[in-house]
Design a protein around this nucleic acid. Structure first.
Lengths: 334, 334
DNA sequence: GTTGGTATCGATACCGGTATCGGTATCGAC
DNA sequence: GTCGATACCGATACCGGTATCGATACCAAC
């Protein structure tokens, strides 16, 4: 046996005793092909283990079944769940997701978008609305549906699916104020680039300001959000400002870390100190103490993003410049 | 302005006043092209916003820069971290990962592998060693590096990167036995298909059997592993067999759920009841009680898997049929 | 027998790049 | 002035499919 070469459509055609074209037709729609030839081709394809070549298919037909997805991180469960939603919605659509990771780095994001576009995807899903100018231009020039997810505070290139982080921050502040809390702290691992967490903090502060209140203790760090960081930063902020009666975290991981700190230190949560995270992770729901959080519908956002693209494919551009809002739902955990 | 058409290499060449071929050369290696032409072409490409077309590139050059990755789930943080490792290792290699999700379903896995192969990837990373016959044949016939990850208990198609789950289960049993525990329970959300968890349980039981011991309480469920499920199943198993002094869980999520149950019920962990999970998640390290776990190096496994493929690309098939072992490290949390 | 419609098939031209090879220009050496 | 080597460039043939259009066969209708 010689070198194992890839089985091509031509091989199938030869075995089946028909032309390449007939084999091609037989393997897909199968209109305009006699029943007997369809069978022959199908059988031949199976016999010699024909797989097909999407590269050639997409190049030739000028459309691909790829949907590009660009997220800042996959290790973050929040984006992992968005991806899960995307994978779920894409199922059975004949499409295939391709993921790119930016690591919260604008340069990598630009590269990822560019790279993605070079695959002629049917659509592109990118995270956030605040791409730098050059990346935005790339997206604008791409002649495919672009869905920006997880944020609606801004001007979408095409369509956005998510919610307003500003409003989410405001809403949480209002809910916490309604419980009578007055001395607020903030703990965040907001990489400076985490514009969405910053938007939430902005909304949070604004809502407090309306009641002539403010964030009186703040502790942040450049590292990634982890439970351990949450634990440590909570200890720090409480050491500086022990009289806090409520801490808002940039996300649930940090808040849960804070909860662990409180459990260890015997601080009564939420009686003595109320904790509020963001995302509504499974983790928070199962915690031995009750903390507040904003439940975001990551999965739904992923699903909707895909659906926007699929609809666009079928029906043409109906929903240009629209925003799909999936506002978070506050759970005070009380 | 008419219909916006995709900018092709030919357009670049025209603008730069050279042939397609020269433009092609100028934009990549740039050997055999005069400096002045390289500049002209580069400038032209930038001016008209040339992006390139990977489909054509890969089809024409008969090699792609894709690395296919097939995992059962992305919502599971363990695989998310593997993906993160993969993304990290792939960075700057010029390669691009494409992910497929199987949802622990063999049929979907077959489809995913097939689909992936049709993109002519440079390599394929799949999860586990226990693919059904037809999928395995697909992998065997593919003339690219195939890396099976997360498991080494079996016969790899090509290369495997992971660890023995049987030994991992044994090791945990031995470590727990060494602390003097005698009445073992097991809690698992082993979908029947979760062969790896079953391998661990098998190893665990075998090690106990050597000491004439066994698992005297077992509680499983078909659902996905969640903290809530861990909490519930722990309550159930303890209700039936209250005298357990140690529970082995199929993973950390369940074990952490068990920990939450114990905290709520005032059960002293680990004094009264020892809990042992699997994976060594961040979650476990930050828990307010100490539980045992096996630290698996997900990220490293992802990185190594990619490196196997990258090495193969450069050096040819040196490591045919090899196994890369990344054994977990037991942390009793004491 | 001729005509027209339908079903079926194949030849050919692409899609947008790269590999390959041959052709020209330039230059130093003899 | 001729020659060979080197640098540079473009024509052409692919890669593996699909779109398109024309060819052929067959059958019913006139």
């Amino acid at each position: 046996m010689v070198v194992k070469k890839r089985v091509t459509l031509k091989d199938v055609a030869t075995v089946a005793g028909v032309s390449k074209m007939t084999a091609s037709r037989a393997l897909r729609g199968a209109s305009d092909v006699s029943k007997s030839n369809v069978d022959k081709v199908r059988q031949a394809a199976k016999d010699i283990g024909y797989i097909g070549n999407h590269l050639a298919l997409s190049l030739s037909s000028q459309r691909s079944n790829l949907i590009g997805v660009i997220v800042p991180s996959v290790a973050n469960i929040v984006f992992a769940e968005v991806l899960a939603g995307i994978a779920e919605a894409i199922e059975n659509s004949g499409m295939q997701p391709v993921f790119g990771v930016t690591d919260y780095d604008a340069t990598k994001e630009y590269d990822a978008v560019r790279n993605m576009l070079s695959w002629n995807p049917a659509g592109l899903i990118v995270t956030g609305l605040d791409q730098p100018e050059d990346t935005r231009r790339l997206l604008l020039n791409a002649d495919i549906p672009i869905v920006q997810i997880m944020d609606t505070d801004g001007d979408p290139v095409d369509v956005c699916v998510g919610f307003s982080h500003v409003r989410a921050g405001e809403a949480m502040a209002e809910a916490l104020l309604a419980t009578g809390r007055k001395r607020f702290g903030y703990v965040g691992c907001g990489l400076v680039q985490d514009t969405r967490a910053n938007k939430r903090l902005g909304g949070f502060k604004r809502a407090l300001a309306k009641r002539k209140l403010g964030v009186i203790g703040i502790e942040t760090s450049e590292e990634h959000s982890t439970l351990a960081a949450g634990r440590r930063l909570t200890a720090q902020v409480l050491k500086k400002i022990p009289e806090l009666d409520c801490i808002y975290y940039s996300n649930d991981d940090l808040a849960a870390g804070g909860a662990f700190h409180c459990i260890s230190e015997g601080i009564a949560v939420p009686e003595q100190l109320m904790l509020a995270g963001f995302n509504g992770l499974d983790l928070v729901k199962s915690l031995p103490v009750r903390i507040a959080t904003s439940l975001t519908s990551r999965r739904d956002i992923g699903i909707e993003a895909v659906n926007v693209i699929l609809r666009r494919q079928r029906e043409g551009s109906d929903t240009k410049n629209r925003c799909f809002d999936h506002p978070p739902h506050i759970d005070l955990g009380l």
